[in-house]
Simulated assay, not measured.
Amino acid sequence: MTLSLDDIAWHRSVGQLIDALDKPNFWTQLVRLLDQYVSFDSWVALLFSADQRPQVFAECPGEDGSPDQLFQDYLRGLYLLDPFYIACREQSRTGLYRLSEVAPEHFELTEYYQRYFRLNVVADEIQFNCQLEGDRTLCLSLGSTQRFSGQQIALLSLIQPWVLGLLRQRLPYEINEVVALAPAPPQADWRVQLEESVQQLKGAQLTARELDVGRLMLSGCSSKEIARKLEISVETVKVHKKHMYSKLGIKSQSELFSIFLQAQNA
């Protein structure tokens, strides 16, 4: 078997990344290598954990070098509506995943998509997921202003074993080793936090099931998808929605999303 110059260049680059596993510029070096093969416009490396806010290990710098306010909103609570986060929590998996594989049926109609995703990620997203012990997932997410082509996805699928292996080997070298190597102390359930905030903001007492229905609605799930996920009937979903809207004094998902944002920032 004869190696091409491209093969040699790839293996040489992977060798350099192995040498850089304990270096501060590891993530930058990795995404620069990937960008040579597939173009993308944004990236972030983060850790999803059960009952914990995502921990960011590295992210692409903003145009002026300042923190991205939209991404800060994501870390405060919008991540609960992220299709990739939801997919990780519902079924932990290792591999390469496209937005189209995890996004709910009505994702592009949601306020989350209109007010966050299309502004921060723009058009498409793919994510390398590395499942870890303790119900955690190490992720490298790539965002693009254009849809990733089938050819690009095929190429990323071909190299994913190298990328996932590098992600696993990098984890022990992250600065916060307590979080990286062992499960962090659990925070309060997000439902409890959100319910307390909603009660303070609107004086409303929502049930756990109403909160579940509301979050799934905001993430883009249709009534059928919500019914399937919660193992209830579509009619029951509609009843929960009606009660929730009545308690909050609202008439639209746009208003519900605004309350959700206020609650996360409260």
Rank of each mutant, 00 (worst) to 15 (best):
L5Y: 12
I18W: 12
D19F: 07
D19H: 14
A20G: 10
L21T: 02
D22L: 02
T28M: 06
V31K: 15
L33F: 09
Y37G: 03
A50P: 00
A50F: 09
D51I: 08
Q52Y: 07
Q52W: 09
R53S: 14
Q55N: 12
Q55I: 03
V56E: 10
V56K: 13
F57L: 02
Q69R: 12
Q72Y: 09
G77C: 12
L80A: 03
P83G: 06
I86K: 04
I86Y: 00
I86R: 09
E90G: 13
E90H: 10
Q91F: 08
Q91T: 11
L99V: 02
P104F: 11
P104Q: 09
E105C: 09
L109W: 04
E111G: 12
V121F: 08
V122I: 08
F128P: 05
C130M: 14
C130N: 02
L132P: 01
E133F: 07
T137C: 12
T137S: 10
C139K: 11
L140A: 06
L142T: 08
L142I: 04
G143W: 05
T145H: 05
T145A: 12
R147D: 10
R147L: 12
S149T: 11
S149Y: 03
G150L: 03
Q152Y: 06
A154Y: 12
A154H: 08
L158N: 12
P161S: 00
L166K: 06
R168I: 09
Q169K: 15
N176E: 14
N176G: 04
V178Y: 14
L181N: 00
A182K: 14
A188E: 15
W190R: 06
R191Y: 13
R191A: 02
L194M: 06
Q199T: 08
L206R: 13
D212C: 09
D212L: 04
L216Y: 10
S219Q: 02
G220N: 01
K224G: 07
R228F: 08
R228H: 10
L230Y: 08
I232N: 11
S233G: 05
H240Y: 14
H240Q: 13
H243Y: 03
I250H: 06
F260A: 00
A263I: 04
A266M: 13
